[in-house]
Lab assay of single mutants.
Amino acid sequence: MATDAALRRLLRLHRTEIAVAVDSAFPLLHALADHDVVPEDKFQETLHLKEKEGCPQAFHALLSWLLTQDSTAILDFWRVLFKDYNLERYGRLQPILDSFPKDVDLSQPRKGRKPPAVPKALVPPPRLPTKRKASEEARAAAPAALTPRGTASPGSQLKAKPPKKPESSAEQQRLPLGNGIQTMSASVQRAVAMSSGDVPGARGAVEGILIQQVFESGGSKKCIQVGGEFYTPSKFEDSGSGKNKARSSSGPKPLVRAKGAQGAAPGGGEARLGQQGSVPAPLALPSDPQLHQKNEDECAVCRDGGELICCDGCPRAFHLACLSPPLREIPSGTWRCSSCLQATVQEVQPRAEEPRPQEPPVETPLPPGLRSAGEEVRGPPGEPLAGMDTTLVYKHLPAPPSAAPLPGLDSSALHPLLCVGPEGQQNLAPGARCGVCGDGTDVLRCTHCAAAFHWRCHFPAGTSRPGTGLRCRSCSGDVTPAPVEGVLAPSPARLAPGPAKDDTASHEPALH
């Protein structure tokens, strides 16, 4: 009773807030009518008042009428009001819900409408889902798969039609296919003929059939049928067999079959498995989609049935006599038709004709302190090069084509190399640097090759510096006499390219 009084008091307290929050009759008014909170006449009256005075006034009048009803109607109103779709449509209802007392429970059932309790003993237990329907569909599909699609060729003596089998029958139906081979029951999904010589313990000319048996419980189990008994694959494991010639990621696949039913060829011909030897223990289905393919039931050349050999690369099948050149017997292992072999060759040939990528240039590290003349020119003028003790990398590039010797140069053309002071002394051009340390401070000019250098860098042994005729380390061993002091540049003949010694390969005349 306390809860009923509290709900009535809360409705009177929030009546105006609810009326202002509800700006549309749908969905709240319609939901109240659906849950029998508002009768039909009051529903029509509220809609009429909404058209006349507006939605807030109409709902305020409806809530005032609701306060005169019993506690069950008020409880049902609060339940409908706080439904998710009403809270989404009328956003101003959320503060009312947040301020609702926590001790007021809106989930209690309506009085007088409590459903009768059902004894637990009368409640049926839930049924577990079964796979009976899938099993029945598999039974119905198996006879259809064994139905012949056409008439065999005159040369083929193997013609068999499976008798119709009602689904209610649980007995196995067997077809006489000759040579002791028996087909599987209607619940078998796949059958492959297997030679009895590969099964340990088999006697006589009995041949087993590799099947997948579907049981009534819905589970499946792969086994071997020899005669009327089934054997699990673990009985046929043979770890010492060295003649297993397995197909790549293979499961067994029928390579020879008669049109209309699988079996042995007439005249004692023995149908073979995809792999010879003992049956392997793992009978998992292969991951290669080509091995799941269903080959055609007629020859791809003459479009006739009979004894066919199936290609492992495509769905086509052929007569042995229709092949070019014809085959006398079934080859062992994987067999592919000429079209598949030709496609494989065409895929391999473009790969062989692809040009080989060019090898990157060989990189040879230079000892610290040495650099090529090109690196000396590329440096920024007026700045010493940083990191001189790091190992430089010199790339061996292809030799350029031989060019004509340089033409003779006048001494005026070499004027930018040297600057003559007032006393006739050779001065260095701006930006000249030593080729060893890279520093341009207090550098000297070689009178023979006009290269800038430090005496301490080229002659670290402490050799005394002569007063005139300074030469760098590369030119100090040259027998050519030094030019007379005061000459602007060496003779043009000295600039012609010539053979250089091994220790002077990195010091070429550089223009500054």
Rank of each mutant, 00 (worst) to 15 (best):
E237W: 08
D98V: 03
E237S: 07
Q212G: 04
P116R: 04
D105E: 08
E45G: 02
S248E: 04
K111T: 09
L273F: 09
Q57M: 00
A5M: 09
A152C: 04
P119E: 14
R257C: 01
Q94M: 15
D238Q: 09
S168T: 11
N86P: 02
G268H: 05
K133W: 01
L146M: 04
D23G: 02
L106P: 00
P27N: 03
V38T: 05
D84M: 00
P95R: 10
P266I: 12
K102L: 06
S217T: 08
D103W: 07
K133Q: 01
L177Q: 06
L87G: 04
K222D: 07
D4T: 00
V37Y: 03
D98A: 07
T147L: 11
Q213W: 00
E45F: 05
L273D: 04
D70V: 01
G227Q: 10
L97P: 04
P252T: 09
P162W: 13
R110P: 05
D105L: 06
A152E: 01
A160M: 02
A191M: 06
S168V: 07
G155K: 06
R79T: 00
S185G: 08
T232R: 12
L210Y: 08
V188Y: 15
L128H: 08
K52N: 01
A170L: 03
F59N: 01
R113Y: 08
Y90F: 01
A258F: 13
V80A: 01
P148T: 13
R113E: 09
A191L: 02
A271S: 11
Q225T: 06
R149F: 08
E40K: 00
N244T: 12
F100M: 00
R127G: 04
T68M: 10
F43R: 02
K131C: 01
G91A: 03
P254S: 10
P200Y: 02
D198H: 08
V256H: 08
V199G: 11
G150Y: 15
Q213T: 09
Q172L: 15
N179H: 15
M184Q: 06
R89C: 03
K259S: 09
K50T: 04
P266F: 14
A19R: 03
A61Y: 01
E53L: 12
K259Y: 14
S64I: 01
Q173V: 14
P126N: 02
L32C: 01
A265C: 07
A261F: 13
D84G: 08
A121N: 11
K111L: 15
E137W: 15
N86E: 00
S99M: 11
L13M: 13
P163R: 06
G268Q: 04
P95A: 12
V118L: 09
I181C: 03
G268K: 08
D103I: 03
F26Q: 00
P233L: 04
S135G: 00
T151L: 08
L106F: 08
E136G: 07
R9W: 05
T147C: 03
G178I: 15
S135L: 10
T232F: 01
L62I: 00
R203G: 05
A5R: 15
I18G: 04
A186L: 02
G260S: 11
R113I: 15
L146A: 04
K243C: 06
E237R: 05
L93W: 02
P163E: 02
D34V: 02
Y90A: 03
A271N: 11
P39M: 01
R203T: 06
S135H: 15
E237K: 09
R272Y: 06
P252N: 14
A5H: 05
A21I: 01
D238P: 15
A121E: 14
E51Y: 00
P39A: 00
D36Y: 04
P39R: 02
A19K: 08
L28P: 01
G197I: 11
A58E: 01
S24H: 01
L32T: 00
R127A: 03
K164T: 07
L67C: 00
D238I: 13
R15T: 03
P116T: 04
G204H: 14
L67N: 03
F215E: 05
Q262F: 15
K245S: 03
A186Q: 05
P200L: 12
A205H: 15
D98N: 08
E171M: 15
F100Q: 13
